[in-house]
Amino acid sequence: MKRLALISILLTLALSINAQKYMTKNGYIGFYSHTPMEDIKADNNQVAGVIDASTGDLVFQALIKSFHFDRALMEEHFNENYMESDTYPKSSFKGKITNLSSVNLSKNGSYDVTVEGELTLHNVTNKISAKGTLEVASGGLNANAKFNIVPEDYKINIPGLVREKIGKNMEVTVTMKYTPVGNK
């Protein structure tokens, strides 16, 4: 009986560790493109994200209108002409860390990870893959990644008149600081 209790306690403990989810409401996603004519840069510090450390599943969600530019006019054009953010207000990502086995969650440190998944932007979903790091820290998990996307892949049309000012590739930077979610 004692042994049974011990096993069940261990089992619950293991399950609760397994079910550990980490979350953030103010993650960062930014993008940048450089051309000789103009640099385009926007930051969004209100990205929501959850990562399930037991499975490596992770999701992000960002409001398009929360991307802010230095120039208000650029921001207006981004929302009005390119992203059509009244029609498509959100962007989301659903994916998975493919090499979760190389991450030791019980040991603080930075681990190289590869994430694969589906990015939905401007109502178009594409498979993407990105390399980044997952840092196990005492307070939670920190994730960093950098990847490129091509606006045309998401049916974001850039007219010839401004084509020279907007880079062919957008470099996307993701920085998330997750904290554990209380078990529900």
């Binding site: 979350m23 994200g49 992770l58 999701v59 969600q61 929302n79 009244d86 989301s92 659903k94």
Partner: peptide
């Protein structure tokens, strides 16, 4: 992953979409 997405949406901050 859908569950995680639901978790995100379940306690999302008030969502006011201003017309621009």
């Amino acid at each position: 992953q859908d569950d995680l997405m639901n978790l995100l949406n379940s306690d999302a901050a008030p969502d006011i979409n201003y017309t621009t």
